[in-house]
Simulated scan of single mutants.
Amino acid sequence: MYKQLSDFQSGARTNVIMTSIVKELTDRDMLDVAQYFASSGHVASGDDKSVETEPSIVAHGNPTKNVVSCAVCHGGVDHKAGAPFLQGLSASYLSTQLNAFAVSERHNDSGEQMRNIARNLTETEIKEAAAYYAGLKGRTTGVTWP
């Protein structure tokens, strides 16, 4: 979250709404916002039997195109490995971001990892991953943080 806010503030990532929101934030403000969201307890539950099966691109990737699974970095139903949560984001937003990475309109990924992945995804894989993560909204463990 902090990186994304910093990227909007520096211009490395652009969005009319977010740029105007973050332009006056201090570094401390951005750290506080990031800490708030990091401690909000939004952890997906693997116990929810109503969650549909992960699409192949989420669970396994596409080895023939050198694409790792989304779950490697963004987690699956029951874990998050280290990249931002995608759970509950709208399918439209996720598809837009993946397409922006694919054509290098979005370029704030260090080492170009998302650009390298997204440009090798099919439109179907993008739609399936976006729909899957969007469908996980509201499925949380209820974990509370101090």
Score class of each variant (00 low, 15 high):
1 M>C: 06
3 K>Q: 14
5 L>S: 03
6 S>M: 12
7 D>A: 08
8 F>K: 01
9 Q>N: 03
11 G>F: 06
11 G>I: 02
14 T>V: 02
16 V>T: 13
24 E>P: 05
25 L>D: 06
26 T>D: 15
29 D>S: 13
31 L>C: 04
32 D>I: 07
32 D>K: 07
41 G>C: 14
42 H>W: 12
42 H>V: 07
44 A>W: 06
44 A>E: 04
46 G>T: 02
55 P>N: 10
56 S>M: 02
58 V>H: 09
61 G>Y: 09
63 P>H: 11
67 V>M: 03
68 V>S: 05
69 S>L: 06
71 A>T: 09
73 C>G: 08
75 G>N: 08
75 G>K: 03
76 G>M: 08
78 D>I: 03
79 H>V: 04
83 A>R: 11
83 A>D: 11
88 G>A: 08
89 L>K: 06
89 L>S: 05
90 S>Q: 09
91 A>R: 02
91 A>F: 09
94 L>G: 00
94 L>Q: 05
95 S>V: 04
97 Q>D: 01
100 A>M: 13
100 A>Y: 10
101 F>L: 04
102 A>H: 08
103 V>D: 15
104 S>N: 14
104 S>A: 15
105 E>G: 10
106 R>W: 07
110 S>L: 15
110 S>V: 15
115 R>S: 14
116 N>I: 09
119 R>A: 00
121 L>G: 14
124 T>C: 01
125 E>I: 03
128 E>R: 01
133 Y>R: 14
137 K>D: 14
137 K>A: 11
138 G>L: 05
143 V>Q: 09
